[in-house]
């Protein structure tokens, strides 16, 4: 254990430089951010992840945001357990009929100003599950969406780009 730690202390950090922010993400977000929101948010964003019906592929990649390579927290972004502490809802999956109410209640519990980031192909329009008897549709069929991050599932890098764009717009 201690040898392991000593080796870690002596070697360089595994965290990689952040990916460039995409202009399209910034454009999508810019219209939603007001001066008031900027003042309230300060330097960081707190994220609440909600699975509204995904296959759990997106969850695996969201988890990967916290690994040593991506190290999400160095950007002032971190995940929280309660929607009451969240600025951002990171929502995955097609919204299922059985999750609709839970998603609406989570959204209502999140204080303003808040942003909703829909993740993955399913988050846009239901993806491969569109038309399923248990599927309502994409995230915006239930709550308003500010940014959509495409992919099936989106890579952690792509997720990071979207979240950094959000941070950039909020800070600007």
């Amino acid at each position: 254990m201690f040898r392991f730690l000593a080796r870690a202390v002596l070697s360089r950090s595994l965290a990689e430089p952040p990916p460039p922010v995409l202009e399209e993400d910034v454009q999508a977000l810019a219209r939603r951010v007001t001066e008031v929101a900027r003042d309230r948010l300060g330097r960081g964003l707190t994220i609440r992840a909600v699975d509204a019906g995904s296959c759990n592929g997106c969850e695996l990649e969201i988890h990967a945001l916290n690994n040593v390579y991506n190290d999400l927290e160095r950007f002032g972004l971190h995940f929280t357990a309660s929607p009451r502490h969240a600025d951002v809802l990171l929502v995955t999956g097609p919204v299922t009929v059985n999750m609709r109410e839970a998603l609406e209640r989570t959204w209502t519990a999140t204080p303003d100003p808040k942003w909703v980031v829909a993740v993955g192909a399913c988050g846009l329009d239901g993806g491969v599950f569109r038309g399923g008897t248990g599927v309502v549709g994409g995230i915006d069929a239930v709550i308003p969406v500010d940014l959509h991050i495409p992919g099936c599932p989106p890579s952690p890098t792509r997720l990071l780009q979207g979240l950094l764009a959000l941070l950039e717009v909020v800070k600007a």
Binding site: G53, G57, T96, F129, G131, G134, C152
Partner: peptide, 25 residues
């Protein structure tokens, strides 16, 4: 049952390509 999507119903009548994508997810 919260993430019940109706996968089996979606698979009824799907082509092999579509079905492979759905079952893979």
């Amino acid at each position: 049952g919260y993430v019940h999507k109706g996968i089996e119903q979606l698979l009824c009548g799907a082509s092999l390509e579509q079905a492979a994508r759905i079952v893979g997810r």
